[in-house]
Design a protein around this nucleic acid. Structure first.
Lengths: 118, 118
DNA sequence: TTGACATATCAGCCGCCAGTGATATTTCGC
DNA sequence: GCGAAATATCACTGGCGGCTGATATGTCAA
């Protein structure tokens, strides 16, 4: 019994659910494309749209989400808004993921339990 | 026009979609709970079930997925199967995520664009 | 002020994955 | 061999999240 959620309650600053949610922020191709586009430096929404091929409302929606989550930060400049990665460690995280993909996690794309997410 | 997927084709060993898929492997609370449970050391399926509270078929299914993706490795021992993290860098990735949650990404749980996933 | 541009917001639909329950397969103790 | 235990597999379903299309808000230029 007890299919509870009290697995790791006060172990670390972030619960398992929190960490899962953080990864979920990175788990979407659109959001990840935005983050990758921002790695070299800040971009406006229009530039992000141009760089990723996303539709404008879609990009804006994801940016809202990423901003709320603290992964990106936006600064209004006139009618433009420049977004940038909120922290250097996000870049590190992306780099580490790439490293893993080149190594042991090479079989990820072959996994058919889930897609990259429509 | 051109909602193509040729955004970043041959930039790095992993496509954006691949990296998204890798993160998606970590984005599920059940899978993440399994990985966290395995951080101290190898466990059998039964022990994982006991540690996470997941149902046996569910845990088995996630383990299959994690194994295919190269995140964990299983070694049969009699009728038991011992699973372990496939690489040290997975531990690093989890630690980095925790660090981010303690820092700028503190607002993740407040983000209402998506849940932790179930 | 007026129009054009840049961005944000909203409602709705569709596809998908996580969980369940039953069952199959393998391996141990006796 | 026999029954029990450990793990794997399968069909099914429900809820959720990402995309779109239209619209709202805000800001510059002339």
């Amino acid at each position: 019994m007890s299919n509870d959620t009290d697995l790791q309650e006060q172990v670390t600053p972030g619960t398992v659910a929190d960490r899962a949610k953080l990864f979920r922020g990175l788990a979407d191709p659109s959001r990840l494309a935005i983050l990758e586009a921002l790695r070299p430096g800040p971009l406006s929404v229009g530039q992000i749209v141009a760089a990723t091929g996303l539709s404008q409302p879609n990009a804006s929606n994801h940016l809202r989400c990423l901003s709320e989550c603290g992964l990106v930060a936006g600064e209004a400049r006139g009618r433009f808004v420049d977004y940038r990665l909120a922290d250097l460690r996000i870049d590190e995280l992306l780099a580490l993921a790439t490293e893993l993909l080149d190594g042991p996690a090479r079989g990820v794309d072959a996994c058919k339990s889930y897609r990259a997410s429509p």
